[in-house]
Design a protein around this nucleic acid. Structure first.
Lengths: 177, 177
DNA sequence: GTCTATAATTTGATAGAC
DNA sequence: GTCTATCAAATTATAGAC
């Protein structure tokens, strides 16, 4: 299945550079050094190819993050959530760069992301509640907006680790963590 | 110049729905109830049409925000920057919704935004410095990431004013404002 | 699994009339 | 300023051979 993987790699690269809509199946075939027809034999359509990339990305993300996020105290959970952007982008930088590029416009992309992040709001709300915050749901919403901004920033800019960690530490201080 | 404005309005609407790349000049002409040729007579190319929309958007944004952001004390400046997402998205919601949708993939879009936001980093750094923050440049970078996340969130979700203001207030508390 | 060839449609843009 | 008619190229996808 080397050619199939070549197509997935080529598509990830080109979707990242130009977006899914502006990437032609011809250019994917060319980058993967295969025929255009093979793309459709393997994936059916361009959208299915994208969905397969995204599905794999979030499966990997779930595997990476689930050990981090279970069984924590409220403070630990919030701290881990603040670290989430680093955990994700470090473990799969190319995928998250693609997601950053296409998520605002692509329904497949945004739907998978919503499902992935959905449990976090409730857990954050409960965590803030336990810590005595006056408006726990609002705090959770605000922190999720921030986390969303940070993973996109890290995916887009590829900072060195030192600066990444400094940003995350500074953020934790705002929540006394 | 009614037809020219019709084209601008139609393009803004369709670029927001599908992105610039996926919006055909034919669909713009149809939405504006004009001929396709007129788009090219007025704007030369699809990219020029988009650039004109963006240029007008940032000119309006500069006009709206400049009275807010001059001659402030450090604390006031930081507070106003935290309010910036509301100021922008309230004054021109359709434009900022389009920007949210296309900025990650579109060079014209991101270039204008960078120029618009560029002065803020230095001013924020100086403000944090004056307030005695230990790592003013890092604080400025972090706050700008946050502001970026917030305007995109407000542009995308169209919250009611009450909830918008609650988010902004909660954010200000983190900086003792 | 992989290829060549090709169909059917859509695209951005232009020419030329009024 | 505005239109109709048109073009050359690019697009997604399929058929059929190996």
């Amino acid at each position: 299945m080397s050619k199939k993987q070549d197509i997935l790699d080529a598509a990830l690269k080109l979707f990242t550079e130009n977006g899914a809509r502006a990437t032609s199946t011809k250019s994917i075939a060319s980058e993967a050094e295969t025929s255009e027809a093979l793309i459709f034999k393997h994936f059916g359509s361009k959208d299915n190819l994208l969905e397969e990339i995204i599905k794999k990305g979030y499966q990997a993300a779930a595997k990476t993050t689930s050990p981090y996020l279970i069984g924590q105290t409220p403070k630990e959970y919030i701290a881990k959530m603040i670290e989430l952007p680093i955990i994700l982008t470090k473990s799969n930088p190319d995928f998250w760069r693609m997601q950053y590029k296409i998520i605002a416009l692509n329904l497949i992309s945004s739907r998978y992301h919503d499902i992935f992040m959905r449990p976090c709001f409730e857990k954050l709300t409960i965590s803030f509640e336990k810590l005595g915050y006056k408006q726990p749901a609002l705090e959770a919403e605000l922190l999720l907006i921030h986390i969303d901004g940070v993973w996109k920033y890290l995916a887009a800019h590829a900072l060195d680790s030192e600066r990444e960690n400094a940003l995350i530490s500074t953020m934790k201080e705002k929540y006394n963590l």
